[in-house]
Design a protein around this nucleic acid. Structure first.
Lengths: 180, 180
DNA sequence: CCAACACTGCCTATCAGTAGATAGTTTAAT
DNA sequence: ATTAAACTATCTACTGATAGGCAGTGTTGG
């Protein structure tokens, strides 16, 4: 892993714990073993780092989901796949969704970061909408609404589980979500 | 409104926009027209201010909901009341739920603040559980799960609406929630 | 083949601004 | 005379950012 990648990874952990203001160039530098001035070589400003962080997070997230049509044709329920990916993010890392936390504080984000956060949700909603269209008989409007309900439930459940330090809240929230 | 109340109000606005790290004693002092050192007279430390902020927010929130039994007996659907209060928080202030945002960054909060955030959710879940028990034929376990699903959906929908700068997302998410 | 050059990735040193917090003082009301 | 609520002045620590240096790694023209 390059220093640049290490910096992004360190930043991701900190942002997922405490938001955009919870990391500094000095802390990241210390963690990866370089000086804070050198971080500016890789990312000219903090906003640049934040924007690239959100961009890569979104891209990796969508990539890991896979293709809706492919999943469906292989006999997998894409909605279950989506839910499982959120569950993994919580149970494995014990941290918030990066874009969930940043989304909540969107008002104070530099615009390039905010743009990437918006993209995360528009892309995930589009993915989920397709998932509902493939998986159950419905129309576009209904599928859109189901997509919104599903991702809202997941982000909210994640948040409350972390606030309450109780992952069983998340499990209760998603019970029966991807059945039938 | 006393200076202390003004400080709490100013802090609330800032926290609901960008989390715990998004306010400083200097900014609050400037906004209410005193010096930053004077803020320490009212709140010895930042953690004290944060804890009192979360405490009052929770108390006011529960108080505004009213009594489940009273609502039910007056022919009102308590679940609809709960949903309406979240909708109001979003549409009126165009800001996140204070405890929602703070809950997401619970890992970095001073313990007294974190304790208050936990209380917000345990109290709201208890209120909602009662609401479901009163409003529809169910058992305690089902009511608990419904409570978790409902508050998760509301907090998540709020978050995504703010991230996307689109309140219609919230409205879609709650469509049909408090019917029948 | 090799000297000149440029690029990469880091460094030191430093800046102005802001953070939370403290000690001690003034002002005004009780 | 006491107390509440503000003040001035100051501290140490940290913030993002900049200027400029330096070693290593090509890369290229004579």
């Amino acid at each position: 892993m390059t220093k640049k990648e290490e910096l992004l990874q360190a930043a991701q952990n900190r942002v997922r714990e405490g938001g955009y203001n919870n990391f500094s160039f000095r802390e990241l530098a210390k963690e990866v073993g370089i000086k804070s001035a050198s971080v500016h070589y890789h990312f000219p400003t903090k906003a640049d780092l934040g924007a690239e962080l959100a961009k890569q997070y979104t891209n990796n997230f969508i990539l890991a989901l896979g293709d809706v049509k492919t999943l469906h044709n292989a006999g997998n329920n894409p909605i279950a796949v989506f839910v499982a990916q959120f569950k993994q993010a919580l149970h494995h890392d014990q941290k918030m969704c990066l874009c969930g936390l940043l989304g909540a504080e969107a008002d104070i984000l530099p615009q390039p970061v905010r743009t990437e956060i918006k993209r995360f949700f528009s892309q995930n909603l589009a993915w989920l909408e397709q998932a509902y269209l493939y998986h159950e008989p419905t129309n576009k409007l209904q599928a859109k609404q189901s997509a919104i309900k599903t991702i809202s439930l997941l982000e909210g459940a994640m948040m409350i589980s972390i606030a309450s330090q109780d992952n069983s809240i998340f499990d209760s929230a998603i019970a029966g979500l991807a059945d039938h």
